[in-house]
Structure formats: C-alpha cells, structure tokens
Write a protein that binds this DNA or RNA. Structure first.
Lengths: 263, 263
DNA sequence: CCCAAACCGTGTACGTCGTACACTTTGGTA
DNA sequence: TACCAAAGTGTACGACGTACACGGTTTGGG
C-alpha cells in the first residue's frame, strides 16, 4: 500500500503530466497508450465500481495491456490518483453565474457539490498537496473572478475559497459516509437516522450526557440530524457567506474615507 | 483492502465495543488480551509511525500474539479504526471554557484542532458513519452545552457543530497534506509555498487564468497562501461564528415578542 | 464428577495489492 | 544500416486483510 520506491522523477514531472506537457520522446515505438487514456480508464473504473476498484491491474486489464506497461505513462498509483482528481474536476461553467460575489460563490459551491455527487470517489482521493492541475486552477480562477469587486485582499480571497471548498468537501464526505454506513448495515440511507436515534436513545438513557439526553428526549431524532443533506449544506453555506458579509460591512464602516476596491 | 466478509456481528456489536459493554463470556480460557489493549497497541503504532503502519500483523506483533488472535477481540480492521478514532478523541476539558457560546465554541474548535495536531492520523481514518462512540459524543455534549443559552433550535445546533468539526477537520487535513507534500519533495513545509509560487508563476505566464495571473503578478505568492495555517484556521472560525451572530441578530430583530430560549 | 460447549490463540492459506527488475520488441535517428 | 531509447512483457517480492480448521483451556449443566 505504501510507496517503497520514489514513485516518479520529482514533482516537476507530475506537473508536466497534469498539464499534458510531456515530450513524447522521438525514439522508439509509438506508444499505443497515453496518459489521458490511462487516466480515462481509471476514471471509468472508478465511476463504475468506486475508487477501491481502481488498481493498477484492473486499469491495465481494462486497457488490454499488462500492469507494468502503465508505469511507462504514470509514475505510480498516487500520481494516477492526482491526475484522476484534476481530470474529474473538469472546468466550472460560469455562464449562468450572477455578477454579485455572493451569488457567484453560491453557484461555485453548488456546482462543486454537484461534481462530488456525480463522482463521489473524488472525495476519497487523499489530497497530496495544493491544487496544481489546470482544472483545479480553473475553479480557483472562477472563484477569484467572482470576488473581483469585493473589498477583500488576496489572502482573504484565497482563504475564503479554501474555506468554501472545505465546506463542500466536508459535506460531501459526510453524505458519503452516511450512504456507506447504510450500505454496511443494509438499511436505506434515509432510515439510518432512525437507527441512529434508537441506538443513541437506548444508550443515552443512563449516561452522563445531560444536554444531549435532553435534546434526545425532546425529539431530536424524530427528524434525524442529517436527514436532509441539502439543507445542511445550504445552511452552512449561508452561514459562511453571512460571515463574509459581516466582515465586509465592518470594513466598509471602518474605512469609509478609503476608496473602494478598483475593479 | 476491501471487506470480503461481513466483518462483525452487525453494528450493535460495534456499539458494544465502543462503549466497552462486551459480556466477557463465562466459558473458555481467560483472554490475555482485551479490546482496549488491542486498540492501545494500534494507537501506539499510529503515534509512532503513522496510520499507514497500522496493520493487523504489526499490531499483533507489538502485542506478541499472532495476527488472527486479534480477531477474537475486534471484528476487523475497519472497526479497529473506528475504535481508535473514538479512543484518540478523548474527552474535552471544558474547565476553562468561558460561559458565552462564542467563546466556548472557539475553545471547542481549538481544542479539537490541538487534538488533530497531536494525533494527525485521526484525520486519515475514513469516517464510517455518524459519531457513536462515548468520546465523540462527549464532544457533542460539550458543544451542545456551549449553545444552551442561544436562540438556536436543535437542528441548527447540531448543524453548527457539524460545520465546526468540518472546518477543523478540513483545516487539519490541509495542514497534513502540506506537510506530506513537503516531505515527498524534500522541501521544508514552510518553503513549499515558494516552490508552489515558482511552479504556478512559470505556468501561469502563458495561460488562460487572467484573474489568477493578476494576483500572481501582484505578489500573491510572495507570502504564499497557506503560509500560516493558524491564521487561516482562526480566520475561518471567526467568519463562521460571525455568520452565527448575524443569524442570531436577525432572529432577535424579527421575533422580539417571542420570549428568549429558556435554559 | 465429567463431558460437552464455549472460548482463546495458532498456523496455514488465498487472493489482492503496488511496483522493482530484467527482458524482448520496435522504430526513429545518427 | 547500426544503434539505442522507448514500449510493452513476464516474473517476482513483500506486504496486506482475513477465511478456515485445528488443538488447548476453562467452565457450566447433567
């Protein structure tokens, strides 16, 4: 499971792979495969059977080549996953995004969420560093563009973007874990909250959680905590952006002799 | 890697494991091991060498027993990880938490963050469902208690708690990935931003990211985006709680004929 | 009192994983 | 044309989780 070897020829090569700027090599036979083909095969596998089904062997098998031939195109599995992540991220469609920063950021967050719902396995890929691929940077570009008219400085904009993606990822991972918890016990995802409540209710009856117990007794699990993931997501998003508005309002009130940010 | 078998005797047994309410069984030889001993050994291993080093074989080896004997105490590795998570979570120390909800929630978030800094491997454990262990519930209890005097309803309180833990986890995972990215390239974590900037700067010079390029040209990476994780964490936390305050203010302004929440 | 049931711990084995390494085949270039 | 980098193959190693059958130990019910 670990990486005994070095993996690749350094992060510079990984960057070339991400951006598709690999010199094909003039000598030798023309390769029948390509980085994109390998990545696409891996993505197809992940789409069909989940990330756990993506092994070098299975990917190679689906391409009708041997396992080791993949290593001619990809340094190792970790890098393959990084490539999959960027490829699956795609490019945000900002056509119908509104002009105001809040509306645009809401669209960004929702589009990102839709992406994770479409390809849940993206959330399972361990992030190995800052976003470096073109697609991930395209999302960053869209986010920064959405904030162009705000009074936030560069650091704040990036932080807010990170915060937003963090929220989208967290919420998506929670949804995923709920679904899988349901699959493991054989209960439908929606009914999990019921089981949850029963379990907790039985257990909390005689323990040292007064506040929790009070909430349970007041019917906390009649409508279980995460019954509507969409509402949780939207509420968190709204809270976050409300925080931003508060910050902007504070700033506008404080430095009103200063000119507004020039677009 | 997957779980071909059923793993355990259902989630009810896992709950018993978590709460330490396992009937020892009157017949047969007294076991030299125990669930706690196994979990502790696994945690020691994770503390020393990271979660990747925690395998059934290595845990058994550290306990001077064979691999399979572990399965007498733990249904499988997934459940072991769940147990490790709850055990590592410990119990929040609310002694020096202030009385106001905001201060208390800040302390909760910071204490949680400290926990993840102390045991980074906790963040690598894939969450398999809602919090069910006593320690995780203790954190939930503390969080709910912190909000006892607010005008939030139960659902909102839980959502806020989830949002907070999501933020702490996200930020911790980002720190972790940064550290590991540095380790992989052989660069110190602090210098990563520099490399990041160089890479992006080189790449962005001739591409289709106008806003991003503008920020880069304006010195975005002179002080790299995630140079100070602590500041990022605190800023996000503040933003979040500002959002809550805005919600509370809105609520207070709207329904002032309604009595305040009774503690 | 005794035997069978329950339980602990062991040993072996299977299928899977990532990937190192030596090899043959291929085809552009010096 | 001869060479050699590169594509693709085959084999192998050391891990992993865990199913399964077995022998040893304790204890409860008859």
């Amino acid at each position: 499971m670990g990486s005994p070897g070095t993996g690749g020829r350094g992060p510079a090569h990984t960057l070339d792979l991400l951006w598709g700027t690999v010199r094909p090599g003039r000598r030798g036979p023309r390769g029948g495969l390509s980085v994109e083909a390998v990545v696409r095969a891996a993505m197809d596998l992940a789409d069909a059977e989940g990330l756990a089904a993506v092994s070098m062997r299975r990917v190679a098998e689906s391409l009708d080549v041997t396992t080791m031939s993949l290593y001619r195109y990809v340094p190792g599995k970790d890098d393959l996953c990084d490539l999959m992540l960027d490829a699956a991220s795609g490019t945000p469609d900002t056509a119908d995004w509104p002009d105001d920063w809040r509306g645009a950021l809401e669209h960004l967050a929702r589009d990102m969420r839709a992406l994770f719902r479409r390809r849940p396995w993206v959330l399972e890929i361990p992030i190995s560093g800052p976003p470096l691929g073109p697609n991930n940077l395209a999302w960053m570009e869209a986010g920064l563009a959405a904030m162009r008219d705000t009074a936030l400085d560069t650091g704040e904009r990036i932080r807010l973007l990170m915060l937003l993606t963090g929220h989208v990822r967290s919420e998506g991972q929670r949804d995923l874990s709920m679904e899988r918890a349901g699959a493991r016990t054989g209960v439908a995802p929606r009914e999990w909250g019921r089981v949850y409540g029963e379990m907790l209710g039985r257990v909390l009856a005689d323990e040292r959680f007064p506040t929790l117990a009070r909430h349970v007794r007041e019917g906390m699990f009649d409508s279980p905590p995460n019954a509507d993931p969409e509402e949780d997501f939207e509420a968190g998003l709204a809270l976050l952006l409300d925080g931003v508005e508060a910050l902007l309002a504070r700033r506008a009130a404080a430095g009103d002799d200063e000119g507004p940010a020039t677009g």
